[in-house]
């Protein structure tokens, strides 16, 4: 009985997901209306929209990890990144569009952490789409008030002597955290170093992995 869902599990053991049969929301309707108008008026094409989605989906935290590994390995690049992160990442060959990027660096004395309390500002052009929790009201409201508690829920416990610097991405800047370079990585290549750099370590809710 292939259509008998009485146990609510598919043959592969996952729960069946309800079909998406609900009415469109106001904003979904608005998005379709505006998109169709733009296409009808020749301002954009369906292909352009699809290409843009493909481009956005192709950006991943691996891009940021390469930037961090380069900064760990090359003092000249590191200095450029801290001075003008947009220019430095463009110079590395990343197409970051109009992104205005600021790099903030973790040290044994300072831990940086990024949030956008007003919405979900995130360096998408470099790191790809933000994780869902980054957009949640819980993360956005708690990070500015109790960052250490939030960090502990991510498994990061910092000594009291370490200063936590929270950056609220309220306007035109986007931020990337340069995590501490782990010990025991002196002889590693940039590509191996990049594998230690996680998405969360560049948001500041995690640390770089140990080799």
């Amino acid at each position: 009985m292939p259509h008998d869902h009485h146990n609510h599990l598919s043959p592969s053991g996952h729960p069946y997901r309800a079909d998406n049969d609900t009415d469109l929301s106001y904003w979904q309707t608005m998005e379709i209306a505006v998109r169709e108008l733009l296409i009808e008026k020749g301002i954009t094409t369906a292909q352009d929209v699809a290409n843009q989605i493909e481009t956005m989906d192709s950006r991943t935290p691996a891009n940021g990890a390469q930037v961090v590994a380069h900064a760990w390995s090359d003092p000249v690049f590191h200095a450029e990144l801290m001075r003008d992160a947009s220019a430095a990442t463009r110079e590395m060959g990343f197409d970051i569009g109009p992104l205005r990027l600021i790099a903030v660096e973790n040290t044994p004395q300072v831990h940086n952490m990024i949030v956008c309390t007003l919405c979900s500002c995130y360096p998408r052009n470099l790191l790809g789409l933000p994780p869902d929790w980054y957009k949640s009201r819980a993360y956005r409201s708690r990070t500015v008030r109790e960052p250490r508690t939030v960090l502990s829920e991510f498994g990061v416990t910092l000594p009291d002597a370490t200063t936590v610097r929270v950056h609220d991405s309220t306007a035109d800047m986007r931020y990337i955290v340069i995590p501490n370079r782990p010990e025991g990585t002196d002889n590693m290549s940039q590509s191996d170093l990049a594998k230690l750099v996680t998405r969360d370590s560049m948001i500041g809710t995690g640390l770089a992995k140990r080799p």
Partner: peptide, 14 residues
Amino acid sequence: ATENPNDTLDAEIY
């Protein structure tokens, strides 16, 4: 109510 008084928050303000 602060967890650690010396921690900081930076924001962009016009």
